[in-house]
Every structure is written in structure tokens, then in C-alpha cells.
Write a protein that binds this DNA or RNA. Structure first.
Lengths: 352, 352
DNA sequence: ATTAGCACTCGACCGAGCTGAGTGCTAACG
DNA sequence: CGTTAGCACTCAGCTCGGTCGAGTGCTAAT
């Protein structure tokens, strides 16, 4: 959704310098920045009056604006966008080298992700957001039914990437060991190696026909298994450091913070962000996305920016990691820390 | 931790009536209540002056206090305690009948609990808190190792209550099917029916000795299984409606809300609450506990009250459900809704 | 024992006035 | 012609004093 960055040509060198000065300053202080400040802050030797003229131009072009008449300027979304797209290479690299996040290798992916979120939040002072990977393109690796009790059968399903699913299936009547054995064979020969999304309703009915034995139980067990396989809607999203947003006054006032935290509690909104990030990444091949203010659909987020990245675990499972902060967040730092984290995840899961 | 309720005798009838009036009024309005208000609000025909005298007494006894000189009174923790312990039977019953929460039966316990939290929060306008049950006293019902790949074995463990645990075990060298079969037999004969806490280190070493085959792999596999069994520290706590606390001005100011929400993010503090509730319930046989302000250890919670209850799923698994709100929360309603919810959980899991 | 009355306290609210940061415009300057 | 100095103007934020009203404590009368 981020529009193509405006051609640099639109702004002459001096305007760019002034714009950067405004933005940098605002990022630091969080307060509107005036012409006088800039005439000192920058190396270009110009009086405040001149700066004022230039700023007036910049305002007309939509890069900055005044919150009220005769106060300093602050960047617009367009201003930030320009900054993010064109003007932040050196500083970022610098930070990235310094950052040293250390993820402890944990047994469960879930734990690692939670930890990653925590680290990210702690290191940036923004809110971190991590989604579990989508698995529906993954291939079935192992499937087994076991009789646990007279009337219950446990289905264990392992897909590539060692994601394990369980389903306890209650049966009306007792089901004998022999049938289970046959079912195991049947299911394995037909489903093994298929990706989860390939296992659809058509295939299942076909399977039932071939089953040979046509009792109710068998059919219902197969249904249950199919259910479990398809139930990959368990996309979880963890957040950490939600209260960090209270550190930024412009988000604290008038219930904005409440709205934002509510959004964090509400999966659907988060999913949108995660998903656009995933698809964007898929198309664009950029490793990180930045969404600024209105570039996000969610109304509660209009005063925020989000930096997202897509992580990829060897077996093609992809998930999203995000940092949510105020629009005046330190993009360099956020992106630097993010990159550093991605590198680590890479090391853990892909180098092996 | 809640102290024994003061004997009613300490307060004569009239004082009780006045105290109740103060509390009820404050619960509704959230503002200090004065003598004049009460002289109207109650049926006892007394002038404000008399009320003032009585209130002065009540203040001396520690049931109410003035936020600043010459403003109305608000209840102290002691006041609330008295109210909760002695004075709220009729209204509660009434509400409880009206409440109709409907939990959809879901496959996974986890989902049901999350849903319960959501319902609770939505219905009360407070924050809900649900812990997954502890399982360490549960008995092992089913254990199975399966070879998934050359170098990995999957352990599936089912305990009473149909809690399923998985552990993927990577082995250095390939392990043959035969060994797995033997291991399955070994583990099952020795561990089946034991409660998780009975499976300790001693037992495991004993088991290894009896194993007969003494290769490294076997030993490491057994260790991994034991690990998985003991790893019941995955006590999860879900919260819902965290931002509801913003609805109560006395919690919103001066970063209190932030502290509270932070506490919600932080498991350890929550665990404390959950655990005291569990043990309290164990001892006292009361179905619900109320903790008011300083009765909780967590400093961030000193301005809150919590209503907790312990749910019990057939197989002896117990967890805690809580409602967190301001001290001036509507205890009747909270307890009523809670009770109603517990009844439903009971129906789902215990009536079968 | 209860009540009416009175003086007093104190937070909340409101408007006035001041200040300082910042602007836009104009005229002068190199 | 771009740049600058100067000036009038705007406006948010702060402080100050005054008023208001709710509420109390105390005393004297019932």
C-alpha cells in the first residue's frame, strides 16, 4: 500500500536538508520545530527567515504541517514516508552492528517467538508483535491414530517444520485395534506428502469410498482427522510491551492509547497488518516494510507506524514480526533491531 | 489472606445502615459521598448532622475516610471487606438468575477458557483473567513413541483430562523400530497410571537401569520423555478486556493504569494471585474469594479488587478464573456473573 | 439523643493577563 | 534576485485571583 516514493527531484538539495532537519528534530523532541531551531541545527548558514520561506514551500507540497497557526512544523505521513524511503541509510547500518539481542534456543517455536517479541519490545521501547507461521502450504509428514481409551482415539499429525497437531476423537461405539491399523495405513498411503491445503473435502470423500469398510465410525474418524488437518486457523499473534505506547504523549491523550491497546487484544485487526505484510513481502522482495499512519486500514492505528518483517523458517513457513510505535518512532533503531533479530532467527532455524 | 470479618456486633444497626449507604452510593457514583446525600438516600429519618456524627465514628473505626478534609467519605479496604462479607446476599441472587452467558462448546480446553475470559470481560466491564489448569497431579494415561524421521522420534503423552503433550526428540544416530517398540513397552509398563509428579528423577534412573539396553540413545530418549512429562510449567494465563480499567477514572490517572496493564502482561504477578486463590479455596471450601486492595501483594494492584473462583474439571484439574476491577466494583454483579459462568463450565465438563 | 445553624475548608471551575515561541510579510541589502 | 532584518500578529500554556458549592465540625437549642 505504500505509494511509490516521490522522485527526489521534486525537492532541491536545500529543501531536503531542511526537511530532514525538521524530521530528525521532531523525532527527538516530539514537539513542533520552528525555523529558528533549524537555522542553528543545520550546517547550512541561513537565517530563520529563509528557512521560513522554504518551510512554507514544504508545507504547500505536503511534507510538513502546522498543528496550529503559528506554531512550528511537524512531518506529515508523506514527510515520514520520504524520510524512510530515501534518507536513512548510514545511521541504520551503524546501529545494526551494535545491537546484540540474544535469543535463547528453546524447544518450542512458540516460546522462541514469545521471547523474540519480548526482546524486541524491551530493546526498542515500542510494542512488539509476532505471528506464528502459517502452515497450510506445508506437507504432511506423519500421521498416526492411536486408541487411548475404549471410546477415544488420538490423532497425531506432524507437518513439515515439526508442527504437531493433536485431536482427540470420541467414538460412539468402541473401535477395534484392527480397524485403527487399517485406517492408519489408509490415511498414510493417501495423504502422506501432500500439503495441508491439498487435503480438501473432495479428497476426503474419495478416501472414504476407498476405505472399503463403510461403518459410521470409520467415516466419522476420517472426518475428524480431516478437521484437525484443516484447522490451521490457529494463527496466534503475541504482543509484548503493549504499555510502551504510554511513553509517547501524543498517543496517550484522549483514549487513543486505549484504542490501540484494544486493537492489540483484537486479533482481526492485527491479522490484517500481518497479512498485508506477508503478501507485500511476497511480491516486493524487500525485507522490511514500514507502514505509516493512514497507510494502515485500522483507524486506531492512524497515529502509529509499524515496521514489519517476514521471517522464514526453512520449510517455507512464514510469519511476521512487527514493531508498533508512534509515527515519530526512531525508524533507524527499529529497523536495525529488527534486522538483527531476523539474523538471529535465521541462524537458529536455517543454518541449523 | 482476607482477615476474618469483624464481628457485626462492633457496629450497631444504624451504623451498618449508614455504612452500606455510603458504600452503595460510592459504588455507583465513584465520588465521595456526604452526609446530606445519605440523609435522603436511606429510609431512616435522620438529619445530616446526625449522620455526620455517625460517619465520624465510622471513620475512627476505620471503615471509611475522607480523601481531603471536608469532602465526603469513601470506603476503606476494611469497609469494603465488611460489605463483601456481611451485606450482599439478596442482590446477588437476583442478578445471578438474570445472567445468561453462553459458552460455545469448543474442541480445545484452551479455546473454551479464552472464550470464558472474553465473556466475563464483556459482561462485567472489568478485566477477566483465566488460568489453565494445573496438571501435575494428573495421571498418565497414554504414552507413545513414534519414529517420524531417521533422526527424530515423536513422543506423545496423554494425561487424564485429555491433556496432550508432544515432544520431538532428535537423536544423534538412527534409532531402529525395534528399539522404539521396546521402549514403548518399557515406559508404558512402568509409568502408566502414575501421576505426573510421581515421575521424578529417581524413578527415571531406575527405569534406565532396567532398560536392559544401555546405549546412549535410549538413555537420552528416556530423558527427553521425562522432560516432557515434567514440563507442566506451561501454566498459561489469559486476560481479556484489559482496557476496561480505563473506564474507571480513579485507576486511569498518573500511570496507575499502565502499571496494572503491565501486571497483566507479566505472568509472575498474576500467578501469585492465581495461586493464593487456589490454595485458599482448597483450605476454605468457599467457592469464591474476594481480594481487596492491599490484601494482594502486588503493589500495582493496590487500587483494585479481584474476585476469583476455582473451577474444577472432572479429573481433578483445577484452575482459576478472576475478575479484576476497581475497588468500587459492583461485587454483586461480578460474583453473580462469575457464579453463572462456573455453573456453565460445570455443565460442560462435569455433567458430560 | 437529635437537630438547626453557622463558620470554615477545600477542590473545581472560570476568565484575565502574561509570556514565549513561532509565523508571515515587507522592505532593505549585497 | 535570493537573502535577511525587523515588526506585527497569533496562539498555546501558565499562573493568578475570585467565585462557587459541597461538605465538614462544632455549638447551642430542642
Amino acid at each position: 500500500m505504500p505509494k511509490e516514493a516521490p522522485r527526489i527531484a521534486e525537492l532541491d538539495d536545500r529543501k531536503v536538508k531542511i526537511l530532514v532537519a525538521v524530521i530528525r528534530n521532531y523525532l527527538e523532541t516530539g514537539e513542533p520545530v520552528g525555523s529558528r531551531t533549524i537555522s542553528k541545527y543545520t550546517d547550512l548558514k541561513l537565517s530563520s527567515a529563509t528557512i521560513r520561506n522554504e518551510m512554507s514551500d514544504l508545507e504547500e507540497m505536503g511534507y510538513i504541517f502546522q498543528p496550529h497557526t503559528s506554531s512550528g512544523r511537524i512531518p506529515t505521513d508523506k514527510g515520514y514516508r520520504f524520510y524512510v524511503d530515501n534518507l536513512m541509510s548510514e545511521k541504520e547500518r551503524e546501529i545494526q552492528e551494535k545491537e546484540e539481542l540474544i535469543i535463547e534456543k528453546a524447544d518450542k517455536l512458540e516460546e522462541v517467538l514469545k521471547q523474540a517479541a519480548k526482546l524486541l519490545a524491551a530493546n526498542t521501547n515500542y510494542t512488539a508483535l509476532v505471528s506464528t507461521p502459517e502452515t497450510h502450504r506445508n506437507k504432511l509428514k506423519f500421521l498416526q491414530l492411536s486408541k487411548v481409551e475404549k471410546d477415544s482415539v488420538l490423532a497425531v499429525i506432524v507437518v513439515e517444520g515439526n508442527i504437531i497437531k493433536n485431536k482427540m476423537i470420541h467414538t460412539e461405539e468402541e473401535i477395534d485395534e484392527d480397524t485403527i491399523l487399517k485406517l492408519n495405513l489408509l490415511l498414510n498411503t493417501h495423504l502422506n506428502g501432500l500439503s495441508l491445503e491439498e487435503i480438501n473435502l473432495g479428497l476426503i470423500t474419495l478416501l472414504k469410498e476407498r476405505a472399503g469398510i463403510h461403518t459410521e465410525i470409520v467415516s466419522s474418524v476420517i472426518d475428524a482427522v480431516a478437521d484437525a488437518i484443516r484447522a490451521d486457523e490457529d494463527l496466534e499473534i503475541y504482543t509484548s510491551g503493549a504499555t510502551n505506547i504510554f511513553k509517547y504523549p501524543e498517543l496517550t491523550d484522549s483514549g487513543k492509547a486505549t484504542d490501540i491497546i484494544n486493537t492489540f487484544e483484537n486479533k482481526e485487526e492485527l491479522e490484517k497488518i500481518v497479512n498485508t505484510s506477508l503478501s507485500e513481502n511476497n511480491a516486493g522482495r524487500k525485507e522490511m516494510q514500514v507502514y505509516i499512519g493512514k497507510e494502515m486500514s485500522s483507524p486506531a492505528m492512524q497515529d502509529c507506524s509499524v515496521v514489519t518483517a517476514t521471517y522464514e523458517l526453512g520449510d517455507g513457513m512464514r510469519g511476521t514480526i512487527g514493531i508498533v510505535g508512534p509515527k515519530r518512532m526512531d525508524y533507524e533503531k527499529a529497523m536495525g533491531t529488527m534486522k538483527s533479530l531476523m539474523n538471529q532467527l535465521d541462524e537458529i532455524y536455517n543454518k541449523k
